[in-house]
Amino acid sequence: MQETWIMMDVKNSRQITTTAPDAYDDDGRAKRTGNLKSAVAHIITAIIGSGVLSLAWSIAQLGWIGGPLALLCCAIATYISSIILSDCYRSPDPVTGKRNYSYIDAVRVNLGMKRTYVAGFLQFLSLYVTSIAYVITTGTSLRYFFR
């Protein structure tokens, strides 16, 4: 599969059609353009953002020993989860296997359809509950803002 690019030659007022052979990956989908620098930037943004926001709260609620310990436990759980998820990126072989494009695809390939429904339900439940928490937090923040 090749991607066709249509460009306009402004000088002669005509269209130029070219194909980009490297526009698609080995499975026919558009090739990814990310690199190591963009991946590191996303990881740092996610980790530092959540860490900075939760550090003060966890220390205020749990103290100087319990707060950092709770954050360390959450960091370990996140690290283990990310390793497991990255191992499920391609199945059954992590190098040459079929690519799983979503979390649900990885669950379906590795655990079967019955557990896919359970995982999908839990994933949507988590999204729903998180959305409710964001709405409540936003409402509370706006109430204090307008006082």
Rank of each mutant, 00 (worst) to 15 (best):
S58M: 09
G67P: 09
S91C: 00
L127R: 08
V118Q: 13
I43W: 13
D93Q: 09
A119P: 01
K98C: 02
Y101M: 05
W57Q: 06
Q15K: 10
Q61M: 14
R147S: 11
T18P: 02
L125P: 05
I65G: 05
L53E: 07
T17G: 02
V52D: 06
T45I: 07
K37L: 15
Y103S: 06
S38Q: 12
I104S: 10
P92A: 00
E3S: 03
A39K: 09
T18K: 07
Q123V: 04
R90P: 07
R90G: 03
V129C: 04
W64M: 01
L53S: 12
G49C: 10
Q123I: 05
S58L: 12
D22Y: 01
Y79E: 10
L111V: 04
G139M: 03
G63Q: 06
D27K: 01
L72W: 08
W5Y: 10
S91W: 00
W57L: 15
L71P: 07
I44L: 15
L127W: 11
M1A: 01
H42I: 04
I43E: 10
D26H: 00
I44N: 08
E3G: 02
D25C: 02
P94Q: 00
T140D: 09
H42L: 03
I43Y: 14
D26E: 07
A77W: 11
Y103K: 02
R90Y: 02
I16Q: 06
Q61L: 15
F145K: 03
